[in-house]
Design a protein around this nucleic acid. Structure first.
Lengths: 356, 356
DNA sequence: TCACCCTATGTAATCGATTACATGCAACTT
DNA sequence: AAGTTGCATGTAATCGATTACATAGGGTGA
């Protein structure tokens, strides 16, 4: 395919339209390229007349600075990498939107990397940042990457500003944007307890996940605050997916002595859970209450509608992007931002019924 | 901050880690930069010994080619722009995943632009592509952009390979990846009719949307095939969102003479619809059947589970990315790819009940 | 009036990789 | 043996914008 290269070049007629260069603009405006560049970057350092001529020439030629050239010289890409574990997860998409909005307003583009649990991909994108393809990165995956292979040589690593979103990265000295998972989980647990529930099951996130650890601590906090004992038998493993909720539900249905309330640490799991319970003939919330976490769009229209913890997803994205932009532009950025959550009461949770 | 430039240079100690350049590798391997470049791009044109030395030097220095420099010279960015109307929509996120996967395997990165209905954003990204920041673009928004302002000057526009996904762009001579919306809608309509339903309502997508037009035609096809008359009163405007489904549902509940089945042209609307009907005391599917379109994750766990049209979303994304990569690499790419849909039968649709 | 400073602008080095062209050398042809 | 071919490699031009440094001209103060 590269053999075509010469043909492209030889062709005198405009087979392919060439974009205007800064040279073209300079010629048309009768100034030097330096003046054109300055007219755009630091208008106050150019005389009004020259600036006007330059702007006119730009309009006439449709000039747009070549980003590769600009980036090569100035070592800035105006691109930000967003690393996340699963692009198709509803929870992330709204956060992404918040990030994109904010980045866009500041003139940054967004490159997305869906790690999909693949270490190779992770390595690739670590190299990607190291190669200076992006000015900064927002991590939604709960850990730093490019874990320095300690071996000989110790290749020089470029470090760029990072921000951790949602899954705080312990020990990393970077801005972290998060909600207070522990407090929120505690609050939900206490809410369930306050409705009379004594046997409250907990469907967890993936083991070792930082969110999970926080929420689990919050769950225990809540139990303690309500004076309830912690029963390991009521902890059901999950991984935030619908399927995990379904599996957890099947396990519950099969039990002789069922809990009267289930706290699922994601809405997806809660919805899968409710589905399974209902299919098995149990009534939610009459026979068993189900609570979620996240407040995704579908929580409000689930049947029954889901009591959950509202996370300000868009705002989280915006805050992360803002923090990163602060770093990129040399401003101080807050080291830790905690956004408030809200307990959203809907129909999937009800006071303990007399019998059960 | 650029004043540091000299300091960097003067400073012998590593104040700031500089990424290895091709020069460094060349020196270490005792070859020229051209050989290093060739060892990477066209290994067969370099002697095995030289190649080995180069690779070793690369490993030792952790060299990664500077993408800005590479792109400046070779006019390639290895980046693809994906333009979509709403990033937070569940429907798109799985498609995105398919796109990302495929692009990644081919060595391309993905830049996402969420248009969010903003013409300015659209203009910005049109300029973005024109500036050569990406090698190609995948459009999910149903129309081309950068609508040439015809005025004087006629700025030179760089044109890059494009691919349209899902919403075919009429008149555009670019590869289009889609499903047969019309046939799928017809099929669903006939399915409803075959169960005895005579009054079938249709909840539409946004007016002027190409998907909508196709599906609407399919709906009419289906009615005709089933020998049912088309009744404009049974067409309810929507826009694919949950809220639209809720509103449409409220409208239905208020009616004196209700349809016995509703075909919502998105799962989101169907779920909102079911929610509203159930809240109003109607039973789904006993009193009224509800069908959706898309088969998003939540369709299977809705209550009742949703009968819908399955779209192979991940495959759609993959196909679009493949087609684009074909274009980018000078290979021929199919002009039109149609992936198959599937009618998924679940619980939200049932045969017409005796009474109603 | 001279020295000095400040502003507006131009000249040219620079960022780092790719690649056209040149060169040197070995192998093969006649 | 001279000429031809072809491979491996090096040299240096090139991509397009930014920006350090140089310079010219106008204004101010002594």
């Amino acid at each position: 395919m590269d053999d075509l290269g010469q043909a492209d070049r030889a062709e005198p007629e405009e087979t392919r339209i060439r974009a205007a260069r800064i040279q073209d603009v300079a010629q048309l405006a009768d100034v030097s390229t330096a003046t054109v560049s300055r007219a755009l970057a630091t208008p106050e350092r150019v005389s009004p007349e020259a600036r006007a001529r330059v702007l006119e020439a730009i309009a006439k030629t449709g000039y747009v600075p070549n980003p590769a050239a600009r980036s090569l010289r100035s070592q800035k890409t105006f691109m930000v990498l967003v690393v996340l574990p699963d692009l198709s997860n509803t929870f992330f998409s709204k956060i992404l939107r918040g990030i994109e909005e904010t980045l866009f307003e500041a003139g940054y583009g967004m490159i997305i990397s869906d790690l999909d649990g693949s270490p190779e991909k992770e390595a690739h994108f670590a190299a990607f940042t190291a190669a200076g393809r992006v000015d900064g990165a927002i991590l939604l995956n709960g850990h730093l990457f490019g874990q320095s292979r300690e071996g000989e040589g110790q290749p020089a690593r470029l470090t760029i500003p990072l921000v951790a979103l949602c899954e705080a990265i312990p020990g990393a000295d970077i801005p972290q944007i998060e909600i207070d998972n522990r407090a929120a989980a505690s609050r939900m647990t206490q809410h369930l307890a306050s409705l009379g529930h004594r046997r409250i099951a907990y469907v967890s996130g993936p083991a070792n996940n930082i969110l999970e650890r926080e929420r689990f601590l919050g769950f225990k906090d809540g139990l303690e605050a309500a004076g309830l004992p912690f029963d390991p038998a009521l902890v059901i493993p999950g991984d935030y997916t619908i399927e995990a909720g379904i599996r957890a539900g099947q396990g519950l249905v099969a039990r002789a002595e069922r809990p009267t309330a289930v706290f699922c640490t994601s809405d997806e799991m809660a919805i899968g859970m409710m589905r399974t319970l209902l299919s098995a003939g149990l009534r939610v919330p009459h026979d068993i209450s189900v609570a979620g976490f996240d407040d995704i769009e579908f929580a409000a229209v689930a049947e029954p509608s889901l009591t959950t913890i509202h996370q300000p997803r868009r705002e989280l994205g915006q805050a992360a992007a803002s923090a990163l932009i602060d770093c990129l532009q040399g401003r101080a950025s807050p080291k830790r931002i905690r956004l408030d959550t809200e307990l959203v009461l809907r129909d999937s949770v009800a006071p303990l019924q007399g019998g059960a």
